[in-house]
Computed example of a mutant assay.
Amino acid sequence: MARPRRGHELAAETVIDAAAEVFAANGFSASTLDQVAERLGVTRQSVLGRFPSKRDLFRAVLDRDRHWADQMLIAAASIDDASPFASLIRFLGLGEEGRARIRLQHVLQGEAIAGDADTRAFILERNRVIHDQIFQRAQRADALGILAPGWTVASSATAIMALINGLQTLILLDPDAPVKDAFDRAMAGFILKGEEE
């Protein structure tokens, strides 16, 4: 990350970038404005000049992440009928930026479970958005008559959501884990196969 030169006003986005890295490394509770300032090479007062509190800065990080997640969404009209679940791979965080985003999400999940209101609201909203994307695809597969036997729209959406969450954890712990192959094989299992020739 490019450090701002001393004596120049910090851009809000620069502060948000640094804060996102600090929050992803430490969570909200254990992070401090001093750590954000140190990452930027400025004083705590400089950070406070942009954001009046750690909570305000945290909300700005979450707002930016929501915007990024919104850009990831695919309209229901563009779902591939031949493989309706394939595009969900974008939620695995296979690229460097994606991993940074899901790292923040996974670190905050623990704090959400522990009861922090802002992180809980963020995680619940993020999960709802991803679940809606999966549910749309399960509905489409069901409407086409290709949802594998034994799966309902609701049960397949829940199972795929859990699978994505687990694969995200694996890739955060080991970027070389073969999650793409596991994802592809699992998604194929939700689709009714044609008759053997």
Score class of each variant (00 low, 15 high):
115 G>K: 14
110 G>M: 03
112 A>H: 09
101 R>T: 07
83 S>G: 08
83 S>M: 09
106 H>L: 02
87 S>W: 00
80 D>S: 11
95 G>F: 02
84 P>Q: 13
80 D>Y: 11
103 R>D: 07
110 G>D: 04
106 H>R: 15
84 P>K: 14
110 G>Q: 06
94 L>Q: 12
97 E>L: 12
88 L>S: 06
78 S>C: 10
90 R>K: 08
95 G>M: 08
112 A>C: 04
76 A>M: 12
98 G>P: 12
98 G>V: 07
77 A>K: 15
77 A>S: 15
92 L>C: 03
104 L>M: 00
96 E>V: 14
117 A>N: 07
118 D>A: 05
117 A>K: 15
82 A>S: 12
76 A>D: 14
106 H>S: 05
92 L>T: 12
85 F>R: 14
77 A>R: 12
108 L>W: 03
104 L>P: 08
80 D>W: 04
84 P>T: 09
80 D>P: 06
81 D>Q: 08
99 R>I: 09
102 I>G: 08
103 R>N: 11
107 V>E: 10
118 D>T: 00
109 Q>T: 03
102 I>F: 01
102 I>V: 12
89 I>R: 13
82 A>N: 06
102 I>A: 07
113 I>G: 05
102 I>E: 06
77 A>H: 12
110 G>H: 11
83 S>K: 15
97 E>N: 13
100 A>S: 10
88 L>F: 02
104 L>E: 07
86 A>T: 11
101 R>W: 04
117 A>Q: 13
95 G>L: 03
85 F>N: 10
95 G>W: 02
102 I>C: 03
103 R>W: 06
117 A>C: 03
